[in-house]
Each structure stands twice: as structure tokens, then as C-alpha cells.
Design a protein around this nucleic acid. Sequence first.
DNA 1: TTGTATGCGTTATCAT
DNA 2: ATGATAACGCATACAA
Lengths: 346, 346
Amino acid sequence: MATIKDVAREASVSVATVSRVFSGAGVVREVTARRVRDVARALRYAPHGGARSLITRRTHTLGVLLPDLYGEFFSELIHGIDVTARREGYHILVSRSWEGRTEIEEAMRAMKGRVDGLLLMSPDVDAESLGNIPQGLPVVLLCTPAGGATVDSIMIDNFRGAREMVRHLISLGHRRIAIIKGAAGNYDAAERLRGYRAALRDAGIDLDRALERDGDFTEAGGYAAAAELLSMTPRPAAIFAANDSMAIGALSALRESGVRVPDEIAVGGFDDIPLARYMDPPLSSVRVAIADIGALGVEALLDSIMHKNGRGPQKKRVSTELVVRRSTGAPYAERPPPNRRKGISR
Amino acid sequence: MATIKDVAREASVSVATVSRVFSGAGVVREVTARRVRDVARALRYAPHGGARSLITRRTHTLGVLLPDLYGEFFSELIHGIDVTARREGYHILVSRSWEGRTEIEEAMRAMKGRVDGLLLMSPDVDAESLGNIPQGLPVVLLCTPAGGATVDSIMIDNFRGAREMVRHLISLGHRRIAIIKGAAGNYDAAERLRGYRAALRDAGIDLDRALERDGDFTEAGGYAAAAELLSMTPRPAAIFAANDSMAIGALSALRESGVRVPDEIAVGGFDDIPLARYMDPPLSSVRVAIADIGALGVEALLDSIMHKNGRGPQKKRVSTELVVRRSTGAPYAERPPPNRRKGISR
DNA sequence: TTGTATGCGTTATCAT
DNA sequence: ATGATAACGCATACAA
């Protein structure tokens, strides 16, 4: 593995000159630079990133710690991160965070000296573990309640989104509106529940705890909760699921019971994953600009890296948009337009 | 940002001792180790990964160069890579490869000294650009035709998969079977076309170039190609799309024209993306264990990293499995079972 | 325009 | 069991 010394020797120059050729800094006579480059190519030399960053104190890499990498949400999120980071000349070092605080802190430490900053999303992180981050490592939290910690964060406007969906359900004339809640202890889930309740209260509808069913963000959970709701008398007139996966599970349960959607029961979800518009009937949902979360996170992190000296913690919030489809009675069938996204094979 | 020296000074030991405590190598008296760890915690010290790898010559990081990060295919692929890498104690440094050879080579050089090996997937790479990789950097190719290059590679068994799907179509009694081809110049696409032709030839059916339509792996492309096929007389009895996205586009076109599937025209896809079973009718496809591609790639790469000295290039091939659903006349409706995958929100 | 020398934070070698 | 010190590969201040 050729080093800068090998190139210097072969090209009959000093290592400083080789360095200048590759780093772009300083001035080198064109003919010299040319000779250096030729030798480098012949030797298949490339500067050693680790060594370089040791002295420049810049890795041009962003650490990304996520709870999982699976499914459409994370695909979209990573895409948003990647595009933005890339535009600024940064690579991304991805890692799923491990379970529990200890492991997350370990993962964060492992990134020390390999990244210039950290994008962190984890249900298990709190202010105290944030206090254990290697000092001087900028961090931006993604969809992670800051818990009083003084770091930047990007959140989804869950409250407004949920409230808007439930208001929409109310505007359709429904009053017995059920919710299938998200995972217990989850921040987004709690906020969506809060939005649901606020909408009902604003409309002067009494809250009914029997209409608030537990869920876990999975299809199976939505299926089970919907089955329970069907056995109630009177049945709810509408169901708001705290995410689309659960709404899809609920749709399955309703279909199996022969309940027509939206005629007998209206169903709304949250997130607007691509699958939503393919459902039968197409699922109304609350669209979240997931990629924006990543993009905003990167921007905040880069900003934090540049202006290390305090700039108070910045909290940003990505907004949502109600998407009405047939499952809540949109008058016309929405035909999924041909999707311009590239196919799976490349 | 505390360094090993700071810790050594505060704990009244030498840097060597601190190093031993954190690297686990060598022996340190328990009481000493304890003192060192306490000081380290107080100083929020963590070893600097870059400096460490400079001398150990190990980064415990795998570079992943992909053409894109978008959609279900890459989500699944990265997941497979991540799980396997993680199990072996490796992080992954992800980057979309840039357009064209020059940029890819640049991206590969940028990884020098930051990763122990490279997982590379790119339509633009050839034997020559592989020759420009920083010397001594192990590489494994993913779904990338090796072009005579002497490196490890993991491929999909496109040929067998396509042949099996077309044989299935033939077994249904169809003889006029059309194909919507994948992107021009794409290796997987070419292999799937080859499988299609082989199946027809084996059955003694003459090839008809008019039944081989151009496609590009997108829904829109599938839609357009299907529309063209519908205008032919006589119409084809079945359509094999070289991936599911195009099959989904084709399904849209058929539905708009009021053509019943599978009664009037049968439709099969390739890849078996999650969406396939949600189609109406559910789409028959060729399942590819995408995550396995990533897993096998990581294993091959790790093996290559360990046994640097030649071991000839290894070529592996992940197999496929025909999944018959209603779009090619599976007798009963397959109801999507509740999906246990986690929801989009976490 | 180019070369020399120093240091980045760590581990490894060799003493003690 | 612990310490002193030389690498690791590179960038940069300073000298020439």
C-alpha cells in the first residue's frame, strides 16, 4: 500500500510537495505536479483518509445512529440525509443504535474520531446519556424528545397532523371516532394522541377512553385493535390509526368482517407511506416529509460543526399535510399515477 | 476534546497504561484501571478512532458504494449488509456512487484509509476502473458484471428466475408471451431477457421481437409498454415484466383499458417487492432474497480482508423463487397476512 | 517554488 | 505491572 513517501521518492520531490499536489493547498509548478500525479497513478496511491483527518481535524463524515434501517421510513430518511450531506461534500457513517442507553453511548463513542458530528434518533436516549457523549462532538436529534437536553433537534409536527386528520373526520359528520394508538412510551405516538384528543375537545365531543385502543405501529397490532373496535356497540363511525401500517392492518380486519370502508366506517392513517395510495380503498393519511427531516438534520449539524461556539440549541419542526383519499370518503377514486421512482432493481 | 495524554496526566499514569485500559490488550492492575476509567469518564474521553486505526491498520468499517439509496431494493440491501456487518463488529460507510467511471473512482479513493474493504454496486464500473482502486483495498462486487475483473462478486440468478416465471406462464397454456425489458445496458435486465427467451425456445415457441418491448424499470415505463402491447393484434396472452415496478405500471394500463387480469392477460413481475402482494390482483413475481446479497457480500469481503493473500476470486449467486399469485391465475385470493414488520414511524 | 521538521492521538516495542 | 519512545501517514509553519 503506497504512501506519500513512496510517491515522493519516486517523483524525486519531498513529501510536502506531494501533499500540496493532493490537498490543493499551496503552489506547485505545473510540471512538478504532473510528474507527481503520474507517479501516484502508477503506484495506485491515494491519500490515507484517517491520517489526513488526524491533522486537519476534519473527517468530512457524518455519523448516523438510527434505531433500525428497515422499511420505507428509514429508506426515505437516509435518502434525505444522503442527498444533503453529499451536496456539502460529506460521507455518512451509518449504524443502527443498539438497545438501551449503555449500548447507544458505546456506539456514540465508537464514532469519536471518525465523524465530525452525529445525527441521532433513538427512543432510548435521554438528557443524561447525552451528557456522556464524547465532549465536543456536535449532535442533532431526529424525532427524539430532547428531554431538557440542550442540543439541536428536528421533530415531526405530530400534534397538528393528527388534529387535522381528526378534524377532517369530524367534518365528515362523524362523532364516535376511535384511535389506534402508537407504541407505548413513544413520543410521536403520544403527540398524535394529544392531537386526536384536542380535535375532539375543540368540537365539543366528549372523550371516551374505550375508543382509545392500544397499538404498536405494526400491521398486526392495527388488525387486532380494529377487531376489538368492531365488537363494540355501538361501533365507532371512524378510526384514526396513529400510523399507516396499523391503518392497513385495520383495513384488513374490516374487509374480513365485511364492513364497507368508508360507507360504514371511515379510516385514516399517518405518515402517508407509498403503500397508502395502493390500498383498496386508497388510504387517507397525513403526509410527512420524511426526507426533509434528514435534510434539516444535516443542515443543522453542519451549521453546528461550523459554528462550534454556542449558538443556542435549535429546535425545528417539519410540517405535515392531510391527504384525503377514498378511505375517508374522497368523492372520486384516486388512481395511483405512474410512479416515476426508479424500480427496485436499480 | 480530551486526549489520551490528558487522561494519563490526570490519572498519574503513562499514556501506555491508558491505552492498555481502553484497548483491552496487555495487563493493568484493577485499581489502576479503575482510576483511569474514572478520570476518563470525568473528562468525557473516548479514544480517537482515526488515530487508532492509523497504527492498527484496521478501521472496522466497510465502505458501501451504491448507485442509489432509494426504494425498497436498497433498503433491503442495506439492511442485509448492516445486520451482517454489525454481527462481525463492523460499521458501514455508505455513499451513493456518482455518475460515470471517473466519479466512482474518486469515491473509491475517498474511502482509502477510512474503510477496510469495499462493497461496490454500479452499472458504470468495469475491469479498467477496478484496476484503479487504491491498491490493497479488498472489493466485492454486488450485482455488477465483473467484466473479466478478478474480484469477488455476488449476483442474482436472473436467468433461472426469469426462465421459471416464463415456464410458469407457458404451463398455464399461454404461447403469445410478451416481455417488458429492463433498462438498456443493464446486466440484470439482459439476463432476465435471456431467461425469457430460453424458456420460450425450450417450449418450441418461436421468438417474436415484436413481443419484446423496451422498458426502464419504472412504473411509467411499464405503463407505456403495456399500452403498446394492448394495441397489437392479436394481443399477447401474457406479459412478463422484468421487474415489479414495471409490472405494476402494466397493471394500471390494463385496468384502465378494462382488460381483466388474469382472465384476458396474465401478468408476472420480478423481485417480489412488498407492494406486489397488495396489488389488485396480487402480483405473481420472482422473489429475490435481496438482503442475502448484502449478507453474502459482507461475508465475502470479510473473508477477503482476513486472507489478503490470494484466494482466487469467488463468484456467488443468490437464487430466486417463483411466487404465484392471482395475476397469473392462482386459484384463490391470497390475502396479505398481517405484516409483522415494524411500522414506518420507528 | 520547494524542502525540513514537527505534531496530530494512538498503539507497539522494549525497557524497567 | 508500568513507563519511555518510536512509529503510523499526513499537513503545515518555517526556512531556503
